[in-house]
Nucleic acid binder design. Sequence first.
DNA 1: CTTTGTACTCTACCATGGTAGGATGTCAAT
DNA 2: ATTGACATCCTACCATGGTAGAGTACAAAG
Lengths: 262, 262
Amino acid sequence: MEAKRRRLGAAIPDAPASGIGSSPVASGTGMGALAASALEPVNPRLPIAPQIYERLRRAITTLVVLPSEALSEKELSLQLGVSRTPVREALIRLADEGLVDILPQRGSFVAPIRLRDVEEAQFIRESLEVAVACRLAGHCSARFLSELKLNLARQESAVAEGNRDLFLELDEAFHRGLCEEAGLSKSWRVIQSVKLQMDRVRYLSLPEPGHLDVLLAQHRQVAEAIERGQAEEAGRLMSAHLKEVLGSANLLRQKLAHLIEN
Amino acid sequence: MEAKRRRLGAAIPDAPASGIGSSPVASGTGMGALAASALEPVNPRLPIAPQIYERLRRAITTLVVLPSEALSEKELSLQLGVSRTPVREALIRLADEGLVDILPQRGSFVAPIRLRDVEEAQFIRESLEVAVACRLAGHCSARFLSELKLNLARQESAVAEGNRDLFLELDEAFHRGLCEEAGLSKSWRVIQSVKLQMDRVRYLSLPEPGHLDVLLAQHRQVAEAIERGQAEEAGRLMSAHLKEVLGSANLLRQKLAHLIEN
DNA sequence: CTTTGTACTCTACCATGGTAGGATGTCAAT
DNA sequence: ATTGACATCCTACCATGGTAGAGTACAAAG
């Protein structure tokens, strides 16, 4: 009766947090079982399926689990100490987002990095964010503009410190903020969903020195164009910025051919 | 043992097809039980969850079930003769798309028509399709252009016959075709997903005479701009076209306030 | 050596029972 | 009449067992 255990397990603190996020690309053992990299346990007091989804999504986008690796319902449920149902629901959602391929009666597998899908994700994101920037230009509250400047200042600090993870976090907040100020929260959800495809590639691209400065400068330019109400210019700048983000994708085509399809 | 029944049920023909699609807006009884409008049974030889999803999606977008109506896992599973699991999976997906609100431990309900969501769906669709039209301009195969012309000719027939359903079908094929010729099938999936919000409103808007002619003319204009390779013009025309599609939304705000939130 | 048949193993998929928690109606106390 | 506690009902959520079907390994036949 696992149900019993859940009741008793109420006293579990919250999360040991074993720092999955900072693990580098798994050394090229290939096809390694997921068993070793044990996902952190779930909190039984909160809805389980979303937690599983979150852990798996993170493990896939940070390449803790590699493309074509099997994600069996049963194995995962054993590792996480939950039943197969929430695992299954998480896998279905990941499949919807193209991170997992479910083959009925065969198994579920981490989807390969399909460059075509990555490029299309880029297209979708760019189309939406350009439109957001255009719509926002000249229609921001003063309060939002000051928030934006605070965010940019913090980006500058992060770059100065060389704190890449913090910068990426602020970068995400910057883009999300634009959507939300425009009253377009669903759009951000769509962007986030397709961005997953790009995140895996981005995680592979080694941090080039000076790259963060370029991104920060572009953020500033976009923000200024929006503040000045130059809609078309804001869109143009956003487009250029988003193209920059994925600039290193072609490099990967040769280096990691074994992870990539197409 | 329902599992036994499934094996025996192998001989079920395919689908009685009780013509859900053509049923008008349910007369204003309000809160009517779903029981009466029995969804057509599923085919047990095919994956069940997607079938349930499809039936429910159709029932919601055609207003066979009205906003705020309860969609209980148990009741639906009884009506459809399946277990609660595939019903649940279908409801989760519908909730992802904003057609259903799931309140944990309370129930699942058809989501109200939130005008804000409809407008944002319109924004997302327009952003993407404008970008598709721009990208496609001057980059179509001759084969595709002839297909496009065939589609337009069939649209003309449909308008001439006054066959609105056929026109809407060809309309969808037109837009989908543009995405696929551009190699952007995922984009079409996104569009379809957000379009669901608009479909419900569209279903409410009474067919104005002459409206279909306008839409057809706009389709032709878009197609011609694409053929001539005029990217910006194609985008501009697509934008105007998509704005036209939802033109009657404001009319509804008063007439159907009880179905609408915001 | 190649091909075919077959038993076996593994999977996702579905059915079904149990649990916790929100909602509601009843009734007592104010 | 209003409010509070409490019992009951109903829900989504999760656990778990059964089933069909796709792979695979191996034996027998060509």
